[in-house]
Amino acid sequence: MFLAWNEIKRNKLKFSLIIGVLIMISYLLFLLSGLANGLINMNREGIDKWGANAIVISKDANQTVEQSLFNKDNVGDTYKNQTTLKQSGVIISNGKNEENALLFGVTDHSFLVPNMIEGKKFSSDNEVIADETLKDKGFKIGDKLSLSQSNEKLKIVGFSESAKYNASPVLFSNNSTLQKINGSITDSMTNAVVVKDNQWNDKALDDGLEAIDIEKFVENLPGYKAQNLTLNFMISFLFMISATVIGIFLYVMTLQKTSLFGVLKAQGFTNVYLAKVVLSQTFIIAMIGTMIGLLLTMVTGSFLPNAVPIKFSAITLIIYSVVLIVVSLIGSLFSILTIRKVDPLKAIG
């Protein structure tokens, strides 16, 4: 480690270039991980807050709640804890701001409604609770909302915790409010039944219905898999780029120092010792580059607007930091193999 650190100090420019590249790679990697986590959260945030085990929808609905419609009596009281979910897409406006949202019709004291942060729960028709993401977009308690597809007016009476569903903000109302807006949904009909029951898979259902595990349901949300696969591919590619860049830089530097390694071997330094020097150098520069990249990511994250769907996970950042350092060490193996082949006599000339 002593020899490795001293060489870094004596060749600041060369090693600074490698560290600079690593900083940019790690910075982009951490930002992408935050973006991936933020997009995942946008899709499933509200669903996670249900704490549900499964959801019952029509078999022919392609696992989409809004395309599902069935008589709630077909489910009856099959499960220990269940509640109907009636859903309709709406475009809302308070006169200043316009937003695409989802309107959920729910029963009183439904576990579908997250915790309140401001105002009160709806107590009559046309009153709604909005999730707090709408508050950040210029909506406030008391706003009268006009709808593009209905003459009904909705009034915001409270805000709940953020509860986005498939990247859309959510409004919660009673069932009769939703039925006024979406005439295809009546008292007896529902889009879905959300279930809290560990034994849900053991219960029999009507032939036209299916119960889906909540995780599987989330994975089949429109765009969910495509977003995750794309971002995960980019992250994996960055790891490979990191290993390649480190490998190339160190390999070139090793070739430049062939005669030096020959002299060291002639003086009795073993291949194992020289390999440890290279690994130590790689570890130091990878650690410095990763830590600076992580610091820049945290600073950037604190300045990003709420509109950017980014959410950092401490565990993910730690794992990615460790993997980045390990991948960098793997990249240095090319140099170690080159050192092993150095013939002291030929290198000295």
Rank of each mutant, 00 (worst) to 15 (best):
R340G: 10
N201H: 14
F217N: 10
T230V: 00
T244W: 06
G158D: 09
K96G: 12
L333M: 13
I292D: 02
L231M: 11
K180M: 08
I91F: 02
F261P: 00
D343H: 02
I248Q: 05
V90F: 02
S68C: 03
I285N: 10
G349N: 15
K120R: 15
K80S: 04
S236T: 07
L209K: 01
A226E: 15
R10D: 12
V113Q: 13
N41K: 11
Q87L: 05
L337C: 07
G293T: 11
T338V: 08
K137L: 13
G331S: 01
L134E: 00
D73K: 09
M298K: 14
L250V: 15
I141R: 03
M298G: 07
G247N: 09
I318A: 09
L209T: 02
F159G: 12
I117A: 03
D108A: 04
N62C: 07
S184D: 09
M116C: 06
F334T: 13
K155W: 06
L22I: 14
T290G: 02
W5S: 07
I185N: 04
M298V: 13
V193P: 00
Q63P: 03
S26D: 00
I25Q: 02
S332Y: 10
Q179N: 03
Q199W: 11
I336L: 03
D136Q: 15
V308N: 12
F70N: 05
V277E: 06
V90S: 00
K216E: 07
L337H: 11
A101Q: 00
M1P: 13
G138Q: 08
F303N: 12
D125Q: 06
V308G: 06
M234R: 05
K86Q: 05
T270N: 10
D48N: 04
T78C: 07
